[in-house]
Design a protein around this nucleic acid. Structure first.
Lengths: 204, 204
DNA sequence: AGCACAAACGGACTTTACCCCGCTTAGTAT
DNA sequence: ATACTAAGCGGGGTAAAGTCCGTTTGTGCT
């Protein structure tokens, strides 16, 4: 008879049916995605195929982009585990610079693999990942920068810029065609570009 | 009786009424923009206010984002003149590095001033500026990089990355709130961040 | 078990981007 | 002038995102 109130801070855990529906919707979305591609995935169709009301879909994800963000977020979690607890140089153990390079390579691979979802997750009328206020990517880069000895610099801003330099080419500046056409070649080129960039930025 | 055909290559100049309507639509769009903000600018409303058919609006601009791209493009032209023919350090005459720094500062200012339009010009389902295949920004940065003596590097990729590092924070990674709240402070911080970044990248 | 209530649900409704296609007109060749 | 034609025009039609609100249901409390 004490821990009852907690006036704010605990928004009273998601209800069980809500969880079930959310997972079911995500699974259904993934099916449709692999069968038909991202642009054919409409909210109505998703609701119908999942046998749920349209209102439910919007309640869960807020917006169309929200669905893709949720899917991306899920896959990103697995990726993030490699980063936080995997083997060097991606995981802990290597020097910060090597980790930063490895991270960029890995992320480019991840984004190339998820380019369709990642694009669809963008939403012109919102900041960016819309879900995570500060993307995981940015936080990780920020952390590694902090472990290096760069002269007094605005590390937060640098992290934002490097995040943009890493994601930007894939999210914005390279057309879908350029990517699918020769995904492998592009991927290596972008990864190499990242390595050059951070080596320049971080050399003493 | 000779220069009649030109079978391809000259798409047969825009018709006069089309030009008139395009300009009129852009002017009307700008009015509505300053009166009501970007998200209230609907295609129907624009057509009605300009006293033209909806079909005409779409014929001219293709898509909603296209209108904002056209507006941005227009303003960018004036800006670009300063860059190509203005005074140093922005214009020709200064060292490439100084010009690059000045360019970033100027572009940050430009984007902050046009943040609403610039955001609205993004179109999830297209590369990026959708108009210019390679943004002017990227070309200019590429040119300046070419004038420096950076060891063998993939200058094209570097230009893409720097473009992303310059535009990304404003287009994607900073919420509208963060920007309007303290536009001036943010602006200076981003500009300073750019300067630090390129100095690091370009130091020999 | 029964109650109270916040959360979730569903699906009709509204709004808006974008398509289509028959009609009109500017530009050009005769 | 006249006729020809491609470009442009208009606005009704469609599809899909997002909102609303009355109804249902899970959950925590007694």
């Amino acid at each position: 008879m004490d821990r009852t109130v907690l006036p704010v801070g605990a928004p009273r855990a998601e209800r069980a049916d809500a969880v079930r529906n959310r997972l079911h919707l995500l699974a259904t979305a993934r099916e449709m995605l692999s069968e038909q591609g991202a642009d054919r995935l409409t909210m109505d169709a998703l609701a119908e195929r999942a046998d749920l009301g349209k209102g439910t879909v919007f309640r869960r994800f807020g917006t169309r982009a929200g669905i893709f963000q949720a899917l991306l977020d899920h896959d990103e979690r697995a990726f993030q585990e490699q980063v936080l607890g995997g083997l060097p140089p991606l995981g802990p153990g290597a020097t910060p610079l090597d980790r930063l390079i490895a991270y960029g390579r890995a992320r480019v691979g991840f984004l190339v693999g998820h380019r369709e979802i990642a694009r669809a997750a963008l939403d012109g009328s919102q900041p960016v990942p819309a879900g995570a206020e500060t993307p995981l990517s940015q936080m990780h880069i920020r952390m590694l920068l902090g472990q290096m000895h760069l002269g007094a610099a605005d590390l937060d801003m640098l992290a934002v810029q490097l995040t943009a330099a890493l994601d930007g080419p894939l999210l914005l500046y390279l057309s879908a065609a350029e990517l699918t056409e020769a995904a492998t070649r592009s991927e290596e080129r972008i990864a190499q570009g990242w390595q050059d960039l951070v080596q320049r930025v971080c050399r003493s």
